[in-house]
Amino acid sequence: MSTLGAYVVRRLLQSIPLVLFVMAINFVIIHAAPGDPITYLYGSSADVSAEQMQRLRQELGLTQPLYVQYALYLRQLARGDLGFSVINRKPVLDLILERIPATLVLMSAAFVFSVLVGGLWGVISAVKARTQIDYWVTIASLFGYSMPTFWLGLILILIFSLQLGWFPTMGMTTLGRERSGLAGLADVAHHLVLPTITLGMFYLAIYARLIRASMLEVLGQEFITTAWSKGLPANAVYYKHALRNALLPVITIAGLQIGFMFTGAVLTETIFAWPGMGGLTYQAILQRDYALLMGLFLMVSVCVILMNLATDLVYTFVDPRIRYTAS
């Protein structure tokens, strides 16, 4: 097996304890919570008949010792059974899977937006370090960094939807006028603008700050002095030499941040009634649908763990200095 392949396998194996840890948290919550665990996995006892309750209790092994119950819980999860949402009359897994595409669209758009615009700000700020431009970019990113996501969303709606009428206030498509093909895409894109800015602003500010600091550090190094003394044009020095190296630390942060982006997605989707996992989370809170909430926590955790893994792998491709050993 190639070194990289072995590395991937090793990292995947390392992720297993983390996933078990998350499942253990869920398990502890189910059992520490007041009331019957069945309430938390299968909705309030009023929705389940006494007969069903008894059968479920047997199935879940609630009469057995805790470690056996944990093993049973893991087996249940391994089968893809994340519980049943009585309120929605659907398995939790199905509910979540339905909502993943919309969240992916929103998060990808916000990620691209924040990396591109934030990167641009950061580079300009570093190249023009200690000028008026740098000063204002720094202030702007501090503002973006301190702006609560949900407030930004509300303000954007107030100005650009309610006042100016440029963008829709909610949803992913225009209801009742679903279009296909290019017109459909344009419709989604139109709905996507405000949520993307809302979700992306915080990360944009982070990337701007990071890339500025990272660029300034790289620009102080000797190979940059060499590049200047070779008489390379400024653009070549900044973009071919400096930026490439300055992006390395940003990738690590970006990988971590994508995980945290789910938090922003919950808030953003709640404000814009975006039909994704975040909106589903809000719905689960309102309806006290604990089975669904636990399923969401589990799914998001697994996504974050996979994202971190992916980040480490991307690193191997962009930084040839890193060689992974299989040991």
Partner: peptide, 19 residues
């Protein structure tokens, strides 16, 4: 590191809703 990758916001949401 384990706590670092935990989506803490979701965890708080879950615990706060249940308890």
């Amino acid at each position: 590191d384990a706590f670092m990758v935990l989506p803490t916001f979701f965890l708080i949401l879950l615990v706060a809703s249940v308890f």
